[in-house]
Design a protein around this nucleic acid. Structure first.
Ligand code: MN
Ligand code: MN
Ligand code: ZN
Ligand code: ZN
Lengths: 136, 136
DNA sequence: AACATATATGCAACTGAGTTGCAATTAGCA
DNA sequence: TGCTAATTGCAACTCAGTTGCATATATGTT
């Protein structure tokens, strides 16, 4: 797991404890996390970074393309390590978040270019509902 | 356009000037608007409702299904009169917002139910990119 | 028309998420 | 080892939204 250094170096960011800690948390999280969760994790690990630093790291990582950013209608952002285009099933009962891929939207994006002339750079797609175990 | 009263009465909400004003603004807006725009409009019209009242109206209208709520990665919500399922093309250069329908996602929702057991209640889908006139 | 009362509103204080200016620190490089 | 740009801490701030509580008012009932 020493490739965190390399990830940072690749995008010309200095290697610091706070940044390594954040990347470590991202790597072990399988769902999108928010700034406060990151802040709490760093404190627990004794890295002790300021909230401003956490927000600045997230901004930087997002700009550099290291992480993706999502909105789940909560009034805040959530982030994940950047990966393949995928989306989420958000259970409104228990809060569980499940990944889904293959949204088939590139077809739609091509249609949008043809019909409306609009060039799509990225899209946000999230599903809200009830997960399997909450349906019983 | 006196059916605003009826809209409110149908969902057991009292008819007030502030509410009529907000519905009027929604009716004449062809793109999603935010709380601050509503607040400013009411002031201009001399209705003079408090910000708290605006937020409470939006919450109530949303709960009653009178309006839909959207997120455009701005750190705030935007609202539209509830209508048919549709989505938006958001130009990151000029801010123009265009509607699109026929996202074809009901097919995907059925697949999600079959494959993952997850019951989709609603979805959020927005496209970010560059509009036709901003491409020249 | 007056009354009763649930509902809506104003006000002011508060929260939570995120931002910013500036001074001090430090990683990366020579 | 020293230089310097990048990073961080701190504290104050902004912006979106919420809440408690007292007052006002829309509407159904007499
Ligand atoms: Mn994910
Ligand atoms: Mn629309
Ligand atoms: Zn669930
Ligand atoms: Zn444009």
């Amino acid at each position: 797991m020493e490739n965190f250094r390399i990830i940072l170096q690749k995008v010309n960011l200095k290697v610091t404890n706070a940044r390594l800690g954040v990347l470590e948390l991202f790597a072990r999280s399988q769902k999108p996390i928010d700034a406060e969760e990151i802040f709490a994790y760093l404190q627990k690990e004794g890295v002790d970074a300021d909230r401003a630093t956490v927000y600045r790291m997230l901004e930087t990582f997002y700009e550099k393309g290291i992480i993706d950013r999502f909105e789940f209608q909560e009034g805040k952002f959530r982030y994940e390590l950047a990966g393949s285009d995928h989306h989420h099933l958000i259970c409104e009962q228990c809060g569980r978040i499940e990944d889904i891929s293959d949204c088939g939207i590139n077809v739609l994006e091509r249609e949008i270019k043809e019909k409306k002339g609009f060039l799509v750079k990225r899209h946000a797609l999230e599903f809200f509902g009830v997960c399997e175990s909450c349906q019983q």
